[in-house]
Design a protein around this nucleic acid. Structure first.
Lengths: 205, 205
DNA sequence: CCTACCGATCGGTAGG
DNA sequence: CCTACCGATCGGTAGG
């Protein structure tokens, strides 16, 4: 009848564990995230940490969900008010580049890192990462398709091709920042996006 | 005066360890590569494996060197006979795409994976990965520069911008193959390279 | 949420 | 190249 911790306190603890986990996993990876280290950093026991999730895999899935919330708040939401089609696609790309430039996650894009870590290991974590990317590509593809339909991009442009190339630009930027600490890369990424999203009729000869 | 194993046998063992290591690390990562697992798979003792390298980090560096040899043989050497400039750059990109399509390393591009694994951890492995990428970017940049100088690419084209964008295309391809098993991605990558390496004067309006 | 514990595995060493 | 071993750490559980 009188739990030692209130529901609010338990939720606060859970949130604190997830915040710390996102920060650690961003740099060390979702496997490098260990219960023991997490417990020590939070001044808790290992079983105290694990009790909130049940298993390491469940913790990893919760961390992924938390990271997705941050990503959507940083990249998708700022673009939502923009006009659908080419304008929104450009705003999305700018928010995406800015998210990497500002190092919202200290280890770079959380999902790109998770994709590389888990693409060779079947399981729930891999499936979750894959479905996040698919959802994101659908979102971008929808805007690219609208831009083509509205005549803002050249007729015959394949929206999925555009999304593929934009994803590549962002991955190259993430790589340049994280591995080389290259600050000029953001300007390169912006230039590449600009070229790729040049409106119909404005292409240079 | 009479070692239990001849020098040739020791070199053969070392090569066998490295072959196995490259295959494992390609999928599980350079940290996921463990001495104990390697020993079990090779029917050796842990100290037998470790004796050839001295430490896990030294093993990782040797594995990286081995992977680099494979990469150069698969991607650089086929392009060496091609004419310098735009032709060689195109042949390089085709070999690079083919290397990913054929999954020369079962886990995808060894260096992209290693970059993500180590970009947040200072040390000799990280430095080695970074210098491999720099060498590769210099090679590509040199060909791109020649193509610009020869008028094969539009005047004013920034060779480093070209390299940045090509790296992005390849990274997007690697991602699509490894995470999504998307076989159409190679065609997308070829299309993107073709657009990016369109000769001066052949750009569509 | 804790203490106390489990078996497994890690990288590495001693000594041969 | 082996056996035998080291301390440390892993994810997870029992019991409270």
């Amino acid at each position: 009848m009188s739990p030692r911790r209130s529901v609010a306190e338990a939720l606060g603890t859970r949130a604190a564990i997830l915040d710390r986990s996102v920060a650690v996993a961003s740099v060390e990876g979702l496997e490098g995230l260990t219960i023991g280290r997490l417990a020590a950093e939070l001044g808790m026991s290992k079983s105290g940490v694990l009790g909130h999730f049940g298993s390491k895999e469940a913790l990893q899935l919760a961390v992924l969900e938390r990271a997705d919330g941050i990503f959507l708040a940083e990249v998708w939401e700022p673009a939502a008010p923009a006009a659908p089609g080419l304008v929104r696609l450009r705003v999305l790309c700018e928010a995406w580049i800015s998210y990497l430039e500002r190092q919202v996650f200290p280890g770079g894009c959380f999902f790109v890192a998770a994709a590389h870590e888990f693409d060779g290991r079947p399981g729930a974590v891999r499936d979750a990462v894959e479905s996040r990317f698919e959802a994101w590509r659908r979102r971008l593809g929808k805007e690219a398709g609208r831009a083509v339909d509205a005549g803002e991009l050249p007729a015959g442009t394949d929206p999925e091709q555009v999304v593929f190339e934009l994803l590549g630009v962002v991955m190259a930027l993430n790589h340049a920042i994280q591995l080389h600490g290259d600050q000029r890369a953001a300007a390169r990424a912006r230039r590449a996006v600009e070229t790729r999203l040049m409106p119909a009729g404005e292409r240079p000869a």
